[in-house]
Write a protein that binds this DNA or RNA. Structure first.
Length: 720
DNA sequence: ACCGGCCTGTTTTTT
DNA sequence: ACAGGCCGGT
């Protein structure tokens, strides 16, 4: 392997001795390269066997990319035929890449947890075909629990979900719960948590947090199992270490018994505190592993000097930020362009116009102004008088245009994407949005998946409840209750024979004859799917199910929404095709696991020539030639919810830093003077982030009212 | 059991 | 602004 393409620091990290290693890698300093080289290096120097390496990344996509890079590094120097073969193997590999033997294990913490639980969960009283529930399912369960509770509470189900999640991240069972809450509330949370966990266990399902907590509980209770995994994962590498939480820290600490752990991260990019990540993990690495070697990667290969300087100034808004000197040999580049717009429509127009201009080389004329003295953006005037389509008729991306791949629009919240999306549609600019209304959370998708989950795990009450009357077949609340009672009574004795047994037992249930017939028909339906499943491919099974229950007819009500729903279901068939080669019953749980653990960024299609729109969180780890950073206003970034809490405000600053450092060549910063929030117009001020950017690196300015300030001058007080 | 209309909280970020 | 939950009428 040739290390000559690495700089001295990168090389030192790649060639570090075994034992704990912390690589503090600034934005764009090549940390993914270092990780890939490190893995290849360990394998090639025979320091660690490939199958004993575990690499944990933040997304499945990142894991897939690293896998590809390692394979390519290792196959260089081999004979042509051999390298061709391994590349081919690599192309076939699954996203949840925990199955191939020769390659290192790579994936997310959650997929690792799922993998361990598939093998070991029987010891915890679950069955290995457990299903993974998402947060809306969590919420449904908690709502039901609150409903059943003898006491009334005005507290929102979301609050309980958050407490339960925190408890799990801190590895507290319901019995061990200790969140420092006032006694009454603590008791209530404990009761809800207990019932919630019982429900999950009863219906053989786990939530995201369980995927981390349960393996740890298992390991702590059973040394033999732990030893097995310690032996298997002799060497562990972790990407984005700054965003790990307490449970993840403990899991690593348990597994890396020989302290062969190599973590890479940047404390300036820690942005997941809201979901329990603990920046202390990276800051205290040397305390946790006293013999740790630390390497710093400070040369940035991504951005121009102007962009880097701006990012540097912004991160200085954080007084407790560890100082770091990130430098680059890249050219100064064009100045960062600051643009004030009237409102979100003006913002969308500016972005669309600039993309058209940059990608086609055309000068874009301003629309004929209809603005009166009191109006907002020109476009706003247009939109009020005409349809959105005609509003942009003067702005169309010509057929002949350059690549759009290099453009990204980044924003703080999904809600901000709407105006942009409308502008892009009108201007005929191809785009993809990452996240937003998530594909796998759409109703029709969850319906189809629920049928499948029920097939995989007959105890999945949540899925049963979901599909029992979709499409409507005359089974209402009462009938469902009877069903549920039956399932509870039968589960301990004959789980496998649930469906036929049910038909026999049905005569003993007190229900009107009509309901009984409906329920019985439903179960015959499921039973039919059960016998069909082993005989056909997964995607064929799904098609057959959808056809049999006439889901398309149910959804296609003639509206546009109905049409979209049908299209979405067809899209889901395509996803399932990837699992068609697996034999029954393995294919189904693997498919369900992949769709449960898929992350938003995994859906990013980098083979398509489109502009990408996404949140700052989703943009972590990515880079683009040209970035439009929109909505830089107080209340948006930093977000209004974070203004009162210094820790959260710091996270907003780091979030801004992440956004700025995504840009390679050109960076546009936009703020609107007014914006429609929750339906009505709000006047806004430029973000404090903009105020610390030196004029020398900037084209455009903030104007008089809120002038430049040194980072130190801006306190944590909310700005007016 | 189903359907339509009204009310509410929801938007910060997510595996 | 809007989706999803709840209530009351069929």
């Amino acid at each position: 392997m040739n290390l000559s393409s690495l700089n001295e620091q990168q090389k030192a990290a790649v060639m570090a001795p075994l034992g704990p290693v912390l690589v503090l890698a600034g934005a764009g300093s090549g940390k993914t390269r270092v990780l890939s080289f490190r893995i290849a290096y360990l394998i090639e120097k025979a320091l660690v066997k490939s199958e004993n390496i575990l690499a944990l990344t933040f997304t499945n996509k990142a894991a897939a990319e690293m896998q590809k890079r390692v394979v390519s590094l290792l196959s260089r120097g081999k004979s042509n035929a051999e390298s061709k073969k391994s590349t081919q193997d690599n192309l076939n590999f699954q996203l949840s890449a925990f199955n191939s033997s020769a390659l290192p294990s790579m994936g997310t913490f959650h997929s690792l947890g799922a993998r361990i639980l598939r093998k070991e969960i029987a010891r915890l009283g679950y069955n290995s075909n457990f299903v993974i529930i998402d947060s809306s399912d969590q919420l449904k369960i908690i709502k039901d629990i609150l409903h059943d509770l003898p006491i009334e509470t005005r507290l929102s189900p979301n609050l309980f979900r958050a407490y339960i999640s925190t408890a799990k991240n801190n590895l507290q069972t319901p019995q061990e719960l200790s969140l420092g809450l006032e006694a009454d509330l603590a008791n209530l949370v404990q009761e809800v948590y207990l019932r919630y966990q019982n429900f999950l266990s009863r219906q053989n399902s786990v939530d995201f947090d369980d995927l981390l907590m349960l393996p740890i509980k298992l390991f702590q209770a059973n040394e033999t199992i732990l030893a097995k995994y310690q032996k298997q994962f002799r060497y562990i590498l972790v990407d984005e270490y700054q965003d790990t939480n307490h449970a993840q820290y403990v899991l690593l600490y348990l597994l890396a018994v020989e302290h062969n752990i190599f973590v890479v991260g940047d404390d300036a990019q820690s942005i997941y505190g809201f979901r329990g990540s603990n920046i202390g993990n990276i800051l205290n690495f040397e305390k946790h592993y006293p013999e740790a070697k630390v390497y710093k990667l400070e040369q940035n290969y991504r951005s121009t000097k102007n962009i880097l300087t701006v990012a540097q100034k912004v991160i200085e808004l954080n007084p407790e930020q560890k100082p770091k000197t990130l430098w680059t040999e890249n050219p100064a580049g064009s100045k960062v362009q600051l643009e004030a717009v009237e409102d979100e429509l003006g913002e969308a127009y500016f972005v669309a116009k600039t993309i058209v201009a940059l990608s086609s080389g055309l000068e874009i004329p301003e629309p004929a102004s209809t603005t009166g003295g009191s109006g907002f953006s020109i476009l706003d005037q247009f939109l009020r008088k005409q349809s959105p389509q005609s509003a942009y008729s003067f702005l169309q991306l010509p057929k002949q245009h350059g690549s759009l791949k290099g453009f990204a629009v980044l924003y703080r919240t999904h809600a901000q994407s709407r105006a942009l999306e409308e502008a892009f549609i009108s201007a005929a600019i191809p785009y993809q949005i990452i996240g937003g209304v998530k594909f796998y959370e759409r109703r029709e998708i969850k319906d189809v998946l629920a049928y499948l989950r029920l097939l995989s795990n007959p105890f999945d009450l949540l899925s049963l409840k979901r599909v029992v009357n979709v499409p409507a077949r005359g089974i209402g609340e009462k009938s469902f209750q009877a069903l549920q009672t039956f399932i509870d009574s039968v589960r301990s004795t004959i789980p496998e024979a649930l469906l036929p047994e049910f038909l026999k037992a049905l005569s003993g249930i007190s229900l009107p004859a009509k309901s009984k017939q409906a329920v019985s028909h439903f179960y015959e339906l499921l039973d039919g799917f059960n016998s069909l499943a082993p005989e056909i491919k997964l995607s064929e099974l799904m098609k057959a199910m959808v056809k049999k229950v006439q889901l398309f007819t149910w959804y296609n009500d003639g509206t546009e929404i109905g049409e979209v729903r049908v299209e979405n279901i067809k899209e889901l068939f395509n996803v399932a095709v990837k699992f068609d080669h697996l034999p029954w019953p393995e294919g189904l749980p693997q498919f369900l696991e992949e769709v449960a653990l898929i992350s938003e960024v995994d859906n990013l299609k980098d083979n398509q020539d489109t502009v990408t729109l996404m949140t700052l969180h989703a943009a972590k780890g990515l880079e683009f030639d040209t970035v439009f950073f929109v909505g830089l206003e107080e209340g948006i970034l930093p977000h209004a919810q974070s203004l009162l809490n210094p820790a959260e405000l710091s996270e907003e600053i780091r979030l801004a830093y992440v956004g700025l450092t995504r840009a390679k060549k050109q960076l546009f910063l936009l703020y609107a003077k007014a914006r429609r929030l929750y339906g009505n117009l709000t006047y806004t001020n430029p973000s404090r982030i903009l105020r610390v950017i030196p004029a020398a690196n900037l084209s455009g300015s903030l104007g008089q009212s809120l002038p430049y300030a040194e980072p130190g001058e801006l306190t944590y007080e909310p700005l007016e």
